[in-house]
């Protein structure tokens, strides 16, 4: 089995229960991902396609986090982005994979059937515990009649 990454524009068999033709470039890539509670997880930054020789490629995972965005950006902007993020993250850190069987719907936003994978929240959690939580009032919502 080979795996390949990249924004292929068409794909067939986008996971179990979804046997219709769908355009990955349009309906999957760059869509907002929400977890089962409606919390924003990130964007579909890239997709992973797997195939066996002589068979059609199958969408095997959605990739998310800004690191996964790097390979999709070409040109000078892409190179700068990759270099910058490469410096910022530990080496060997791989993008977060979400298997398509955890996806409830793809459009208009990608809804998952379970809570967000913990790796997607590393930066958010770090900033919360080290910065935002320590500022007075960080735990108050602004609406709800306060």
């Amino acid at each position: 089995m080979n795996t390949g990454r990249g924004g292929d524009d068409t794909g067939h068999g986008a996971g179990p229960g979804l046997p219709r033709v769908m355009r990955l470039g349009f309906a999957v890539l760059d869509r907002q991902i929400l977890d089962v509670d409606g919390v924003a997880v990130g964007k579909v930054d890239d997709v992973e396609l797997s195939w066996e020789e002589g068979r059609r490629p199958v969408l095997s995972a959605l990739l998310t986090d800004t690191g996964a965005l790097g390979p999709r950006l070409s040109g000078r902007l892409g190179r700068t982005w990759r270099t910058l993020l490469g410096r910022l993250r530990p080496s060997g850190d791989l993008p977060v994979r979400i298997p398509p069987d955890q996806v409830h719907t793809f459009t208009p936003a990608t809804r998952l059937t379970r809570p967000a994978p913990p790796q997607t929240r590393v930066v958010e959690d770090w900033l919360r515990t080290h910065l935002i939580e320590r500022i007075p009032g960080g735990g108050h919502a602004d609406s709800d009649g306060q």
């Binding site: 924003a40 935002i132 960080g138």
Partner: peptide, 24 residues
């Protein structure tokens, strides 16, 4: 919105830590 973080003033700042760090 571009990176798909949770954002906005109607959620508690601790639930939108990246957004509020960016504002700061």
């Amino acid at each position: 919105q571009y990176f798909g973080w949770s954002w906005g003033k109607s959620v508690r700042p601790v639930q939108a830590a990246r957004f509020h760090t960016l504002l700061l």
